[in-house]
Simulated assay, not measured.
Amino acid sequence: MNSVNFTLNSPDITEGHFMAKAQEFDGFGCNGNNVSPELNWQGAPAGTKSFALTVFDPDAPTSSGFWHWLVADIPADAHGLARSAGKGSLPPGCRSFKNDYGSKDFGGACPPEGHGMHRYQFTVWALPEDTLAVPDDASAAVVSFMLHANALGKATLTATYAR
């Protein structure tokens, strides 16, 4: 997987730093604004025909982490997603998949109180096809499997959060 020049950045979140209350979930015991951050990427590998975006918390107290957002079929000419795109304003043609909150929108950070610092991995995936070969009702695990199996490259920005 060629990811050397493929980078992801954001004016709203910073690698290794604490996210703002704006990115906290509104529900599930949390009361944030549930706003997806603006995300920008560059340097996609040659042959990229679409992108996918995932947001994953590997520190969640589950056996399988916690999926906060899964989007595929982002057009190859896209170079990012606008702030609040996770509330239903994705580019035409994108498909969203159910997160672990049970919705297809962005679900912000909401680690259990007192559980310590959690990492939130925002990853953009460069794909060699226009459409990810999964059904619209695919689970997060299946989407993740297909991304790992097919990606030409990926770029990750990891922010943190605790309550």
Rank of each mutant, 00 (worst) to 15 (best):
P75N: 03
G114D: 04
P135C: 12
V55A: 12
L8K: 03
H17T: 10
G65I: 15
T160Y: 11
T131R: 11
S84K: 15
E24F: 12
Y161L: 06
G114M: 07
N99D: 15
F25N: 04
D100W: 05
A109M: 14
D130E: 10
D57I: 06
A162S: 09
P135M: 02
G16C: 07
S50D: 09
N2Y: 11
V4N: 09
A82F: 02
L152Y: 03
T48H: 13
W67V: 15
G86V: 08
C110Y: 05
D12H: 08
A22F: 03
G32S: 08
W125D: 05
D100G: 08
L152C: 07
P135G: 12
A60N: 14
T48N: 07
S10Q: 01
M146C: 02
G32Q: 02
D57K: 03
G102C: 00
S84R: 13
L8W: 05
A82K: 13
D57G: 04
P111H: 11
H148D: 14
N9C: 07
W125I: 06
L127Q: 07
P112K: 10
G86A: 04
L53D: 09
S50H: 05
G43N: 11
T160D: 03
A138L: 10
V4R: 14
G80Q: 06
L8F: 08
A46D: 14
A162I: 00
P92D: 12
T158A: 05
C110S: 11
G43W: 10
K154L: 04
N33V: 07
N34Y: 03
S89H: 11
G153T: 03
P92F: 12
L147F: 01
V35T: 13
A46V: 13
G65L: 01
D12E: 08
F25H: 12
W125V: 02
E15L: 09
P11S: 15
V71A: 07
A72M: 06
T156W: 03
D73Q: 07
T156E: 11
E129W: 01
V134W: 04
R83C: 00
D12F: 02
L90D: 02
G114I: 09
G102Q: 07
T131D: 02
S50P: 05
E24M: 12
L90Q: 04
Q121A: 08
H148E: 05
D136M: 08
R163P: 03
A141D: 15
L81C: 05
N2R: 15
N5Q: 15
S64G: 13
S144T: 02
L132Y: 01
V143G: 04
A133L: 00
S64L: 09
L8V: 09
N2D: 15
N33S: 14
T7S: 15
P91Q: 11
G43D: 07
G43C: 09
L8R: 07
N34H: 10
R119L: 09
H68G: 14
D26C: 00
P92E: 14
W125A: 00
N40H: 15
S96E: 10
G93Q: 00
F56S: 01
P92R: 13
Q42V: 03
